[in-house]
Design a protein around this nucleic acid. Structure first.
Length: 572
RNA sequence: GGCCCCAUCGUAUAGUGGUUUAGUACGCAUGGUUCUCAGCCAUGUAACAGGGGUUCGACUCCCCUUGGGGCCGCCA
């Protein structure tokens, strides 16, 4: 409570904090602030504190607190001190610390460093407009600054609305910003700021100063928008006899049009990125490089290497534009790094969500399970249904017998089969969420596509402008069907299929060639496997772009492959 | 309007007075591998905002202009 307590911070000990207001979802900018505080603390073997600044009772919402905690957890930004993940905030939520603030407030009042102000909001607004109109900074007139004790008592007794103002000393303030170096302010331009609505309702600048002191914060790393709050807070520290922490103000993160990042520019909440299928390591790597870089040419950094390399001096001063293409690049990189098991686990929720597959009904709940435990389990399952913590799929992985069913056909499938699909799309995914759209053809009963898609497009682009005729497509598909029908089930794998189909495709290219041209001439033309492989692949996938035909044929299996070829021929 | 902050390719950045015909990555373009897409490989594209100083020498230091941003709440 008293400034002696501050001395409990060991000399040289680094303590940083992230102090968000739960008035919105945790967005990219705030996440980076949290990251840099975390990195700085870890780099210096210090302590990272999380504190919830909910003094604005109107706008603070529990759902935002939850969102903040869950976002940080997902990103792997772990706090050493702060609320428990499951809602036990202890002293790390300002609304739980009102007594502490009121004590400091009374002290300031008693020392005449703060005073009650009874001016009405209308009055203040009129003043503000006036000062603005004469080209000056709006500043409080100090009308109530020198009210006598008796007058204050009288006014308070009448229950006239009041606030508490800080008698802000007019002086030149200079502080050293770790990123921007020397910053100077003339506080005579600021005026007496309101530090509390009343004894039990502190406002940001005041509560922040008290908490930074109480939390023994050594380094305040925060966004650029707080630069102008810093002189006010330093003055408050002086009045309260608190030591000043070191400051570092991070550059803004801007939208592509150089304006402030907002909802207009797509997803801004961190958890939205999770839902879209971004990996936390990609998001971390990406935001770490917004306004900072280690100086070398390495671009891929994990949390541990970031912790090792981070230095506040290398933080940029200018604002950084958020470039989603780069995030996508990093995300696809990290997707390619994941193991097949992990990636499949990540894809599962999307496949389920898209209604492509469903989980086989689990065995009925044991009847002896207490109803309370049952309800709790149901509740948790509901919460984590799709994009939560994926606890369900993890569990399923552990149970070897995990099975799914293709919704459209009712076929029972296992994880190994899903893993094969995921694997051939691993290098094609920018975001996990793309898995359902690009692989849906594996799960459909019947494909729907334009008949023209079956035509090999390169044939169309040839000099003669000749297109594969329907008849030729049919010949091509017939050929594929014939070849594939002869392959034994035990030979039905990618390597074998390739070994058989490639020579056949080359042979077919010579046989067929382009419409109307004599075989002799065609033999001279370049071998083009597309005449056989393209119609085949489209017949199986119904898509212009997909994974390779051999892989698709293998995974689809003989029966479905033949069926789809037949269905394609019916289109012609 | 006042105060404050910032400024290298489209984007993120390297660069801390001569090593720079300014490097890297993303993006984009072209070519190769390839039935397609993706991936991979190769090549290319593109920047020191402008003007004054200081200096033998300036992307690097100083000033001005311009441009961008932040704050000026009984929000944080």
């Amino acid at each position: 409570m008293d400034s002696e307590e501050f001395k409990f911070r060991k000399p040289g000990e680094v303590r940083t904090r992230f102090a968000p207001a739960p008035t919105g979802f945790l967005h990219i900018g705030a996440a980076r602030t949290a990251l840099f505080n975390y990195l700085f603390a870890k780099k210096h073997k210090g302590v990272f504190v999380l504190r919830i600044e909910d003094t604005d009772i109107e706008r603070s919402k529990p759902k935002y607190e939850k969102d903040i905690l869950e976002s940080l957890k997902w990103l792997g930004i772990e706090w050493d001190e702060g609320p428990d993940i499951d809602g036990n905030y202890g002293p790390y939520r300002q609304s739980k610390r009102l007594k502490i603030y009121s004590q400091y407030l009374e002290k300031l009042l008693a020392e005449n460093k703060a005073y009650y102000c009874f001016c009405s909001e209308e009055e203040l607004e009129a003043q503000r407009q006036y000062r603005l109109s004469i080209g000056e900074a709006p500043r409080y007139s100090r009308k109530c600054a020198d009210l006598s004790k008796e007058e204050v008592e009288r006014l308070r007794a009448t229950r006239k609305p009041s606030v508490i103002r800080f008698r802000l000393p007019a002086k030149k303030i200079e502080f050293n910003d770790l990123i921007r170096e020397k910053l100077e302010f003339d506080t005579s331009l600021i005026g007496d700021i309101v530090i509390a609505k009343n004894l039990t309702n502190p406002l940001y600048n005041f509560a922040c100063v008290v908490d930074d002191f109480e939390n023994k914060v050594s380094h305040v790393i925060r966004g650029e928008e707080h630069i102008s709050n810093t002189p006010k807070q330093i003055l408050l520290q002086e009045a309260l006899n608190f030591p000043s922490p070191q400051y570092a103000h991070l550059p803004m993160i801007l939208a592509p049009d150089r304006t402030k990042l907002s909802k207009r520019h797509g997803a801004t909440g961190i958890l939205e990125y999770r839902k879209e299928g971004y990996l936390p390591e990609a998001v971390i790597n990406f935001i770490a490089f917004l306004g900072w870089n280690p100086g070398g040419e390495r671009e891929i950094y994990s949390m541990p290497s970031l912790t090792k390399e981070f230095s506040i001096e290398r933080v940029q001063k200018g604002g950084a534009i958020f470039n989603i293409k780069r995030l996508d690049f990093l995300n696809s990189f990290y997707i390619r790094q994941r193991s097949a098991e992990k990636l499949t686990e990540l894809c599962l929720p999307y496949l389920l969500e898209a209604g492509l597959i469903e989980e086989l009904k689990p065995a009925a709940e044991p009847s002896f399970m207490p109803s309370q435990a049952l309800r709790k389990r149901k509740k948790e399952q509901k919460k984590d249904k799709v994009f939560g913590e994926q606890t369900q799929s993890t569990q399923l992985f552990e149970e070897k017998g995990a099975k799914f069913r293709i919704k459209a056909t009712g076929e029972v499938i296992n994880l190994a089969w899903l893993q094969k699909i995921v694997l051939i799309y691993q290098e094609r995914l920018k975001k996990i969420s793309e898995i359902s759209e690009s692989t849906e053809f594996f799960f459909k009963e019947k494909l729907e596509y334009e008949k023209n898609l079956l035509r090999w497009p390169r044939a169309k682009a040839s000099a003669q402008e000749q297109v594969m005729a329907d008849k030729e497509i049919k010949v091509s598909l017939d050929k594929s069907e014939k070849i594939l029908s002869k392959i034994k089930p035990e030979d039905w794998n990618k390597e074998n299929l390739e070994k058989i189909l490639i020579p056949e495709a080359e042979k077919f290219s010579k046989e067929l060639g382009r419409v109307g041209e004599p075989a002799a001439k065609i033999r001279e033309t370049k071998i083009d496997r597309g005449y056989l492989l393209w119609p085949l692949r489209v017949a199986l996938s119904g898509k212009e772009a997909s994974a390779g035909p051999f892989e698709v044929v293998e995974i689809l299996g003989k029966e479905k492959t033949i069926k789809r070829i037949k269905e394609a021929k019916e289109l012609l």
